[in-house]
Computed example of a mutant assay.
Amino acid sequence: MNLLSPLVLGAAGVCASPALYQALTGGMPMEVAMSRYLVALGICWVALSVVAAMIGEPPAPVRQAADRGADRGVDRGEDPTLEMERPPGVPAEQ
Rank of each mutant, 00 (worst) to 15 (best):
E93D: 05
D71L: 14
L4E: 10
E85M: 15
A23S: 13
L82W: 08
E57W: 07
S49A: 14
L20E: 02
V32H: 09
S35L: 09
P61N: 00
A66G: 05
E78P: 00
E57N: 12
A16T: 01
G73M: 04
Q64G: 09
Y21C: 06
L41D: 02
A23Y: 04
R68P: 00
A47E: 01
V90P: 01
P80E: 04
D71S: 13
V14L: 13
Q22R: 15
A23E: 05
D75V: 07
M34L: 14
A60L: 09
D67I: 07
I43W: 08
A66V: 10
L3H: 07
V50W: 11
E83K: 12
G73Y: 04
G42W: 05
P80R: 06
R63L: 12
G27L: 12
L7A: 14
V51W: 10
V50S: 06
P91Y: 01
P6Q: 11
A70V: 08
A19V: 01
V8K: 06
I43H: 04
T81D: 13
L20F: 02
R63G: 03
L24Y: 06
L82V: 14
R72A: 13
P6M: 03
V32S: 11
I43E: 08
R72I: 02
P59T: 02
D75S: 10
L82R: 15
Y37P: 05
V14K: 12
P88F: 09
S35N: 11
A33F: 05
M28R: 14
N2G: 06
G56T: 11
Y37E: 03
L24T: 09
G26L: 09
A66W: 08
S5N: 13
E93A: 12
E78F: 12
D79I: 02
R68D: 04
Q94D: 09
A65N: 05
P59M: 06
R68Q: 09
L41N: 08
A33H: 06
V39R: 11
G26H: 08
A66N: 03
V8Q: 04
A23K: 03
S49G: 14
G89C: 07
A11Q: 13
G89A: 14
W45D: 10
R68L: 14
V51I: 14
M84W: 14
V90E: 14
A40D: 05
V74I: 13
G10W: 08
A53N: 05
S17E: 07
V8M: 08
N2H: 13
Q94T: 04
G56H: 12
L4V: 11
I43P: 00
C15M: 03
P6F: 08
P61M: 01
P91R: 07
E31D: 14
G73R: 06
D75T: 10
D79K: 03
A11H: 05
E57Y: 10
V74A: 13
M28Q: 15
Q64D: 10
C44P: 01
P18C: 06
E57I: 05
S49W: 10
L82H: 05
P91W: 01
A60Q: 08
L3M: 10
R36A: 12
M34A: 13
Y37F: 15
V50Q: 05
A70P: 01
I43M: 10
M30N: 04
G13Q: 06
R63K: 07
M30C: 04
A47N: 00
A66F: 09
D75G: 11
D75I: 11
A16W: 01
P61R: 10
L48F: 14
L9S: 02
